[in-house]
Computed example of a mutant assay.
Amino acid sequence: MKKTLLTLALATLSGWAAAGNLQVLVLDKEGKPVADAVVVVLPANKGEPKAALPLQVTINQEKMRFIPAVSVVGVGARAKFINNDPWEHHVRGSAAGFAQFNAAAAAGSGFELRLDGKSDGKSGKSAEAVFEKAGAVLLGCHIHGSMRGHVYVSESPWTVLTGADGIANVEQIPDGPAQVKVWHADQLIDITPQQAAVSATPGKATMQLSVVPRRRRI
């Protein structure tokens, strides 16, 4: 009996690879680091991520902005939107990219919420939406056209947002071949994915956009 259990355990473990780390640097067209780029690693082998992507996120509307400007979540995640401005806002969600310019393509695939302005001394009004499909979602406001944010819904738990230095550290990726993809809100035409070999030795990769992202309003 013990031998059978040991055999089953070894068979199970053999289907999972050892893990390694990958540091991905994202640059713009001019070679400068890009913040808020989404790095997605798709390993060929099975493995256990260091942590699952969040299934709950809070996005504030404040000073005519979505904060955070970009959120990364897993499929099925629920987002809570809070209006901290004293005036009314909408939250309009639709597929990001070229589809956002095509009303017919976006029809029926998004959502719309309305949030009253925050009263003095009271909590901001809130509403929720669920992201059931993988992909990038553009957030906007019907009243204030300059407001823009994004939610990236990923099926891969190895999905990380770059920091101000343009770097995303993706940890505990199964050893072996992997595909590395990058998404950025201003990169409307996808750049070519890279192939990487993950091993116990930490790896590095550099991805370059074909655009210079617009400067975010502060």
Rank of each mutant, 00 (worst) to 15 (best):
A105G: 07
A79W: 09
L115Q: 05
D165N: 12
G149W: 01
D85S: 11
G97W: 05
G93C: 03
G121W: 06
Q172I: 07
P157E: 01
R78N: 07
I167N: 11
Q179F: 00
G108D: 06
A178H: 00
A77I: 06
S119G: 01
F98R: 14
S126C: 07
S146I: 10
E88L: 13
Q179Y: 00
G124N: 09
H89P: 02
D190Y: 02
A168G: 09
L161T: 08
H90K: 04
K125I: 07
V91D: 12
L113P: 14
F101A: 05
W183R: 04
I59W: 04
Q179L: 06
R148P: 05
L188M: 08
G108C: 13
A95G: 00
D190A: 14
E88W: 11
I191R: 08
W183C: 03
D116N: 14
L115K: 07
H150T: 05
N60V: 08
V57T: 10
D85P: 12
F111P: 12
A99L: 10
A107W: 10
A129I: 04
W87D: 09
L115E: 04
E62A: 14
V137L: 03
H150D: 00
Q61P: 03
R65S: 15
A127Y: 02
G140Q: 01
R148I: 07
L139K: 01
R92G: 03
I167L: 15
H89I: 05
V151W: 05
V73Y: 05
L161C: 10
R92T: 07
V70I: 15
S119F: 04
G74F: 13
V182W: 03
K133D: 06
D175W: 13
C141A: 05
T58Q: 14
E62K: 15
H89D: 08
K118H: 03
I167D: 04
N169A: 12
A134V: 00
G145D: 07
G149I: 03
G176S: 13
A106F: 03
I59R: 04
A69R: 15
Q172F: 05
P174G: 12
G140E: 01
Q100P: 02
V153D: 00
L139I: 08
G176E: 12
P157G: 00
D120W: 03
A129N: 06
R114V: 15
T162M: 12
A134R: 01
D116S: 15
D120T: 07
E128N: 03
K80C: 08
G124M: 09
F131Y: 07
D175E: 15
K118Q: 14
F66M: 11
L139M: 06
D85I: 11
V153M: 04
A79T: 13
I143E: 10
P68H: 13
A99W: 02
A185Q: 08
T192V: 13
V182F: 02
H150Q: 09
H90C: 01
G108A: 14
E88R: 13
A104E: 11
N102E: 00
I59H: 04
A77W: 06
E112A: 08
H144N: 09
N169R: 15
K125F: 07
G74T: 13
D120M: 02
P177A: 11
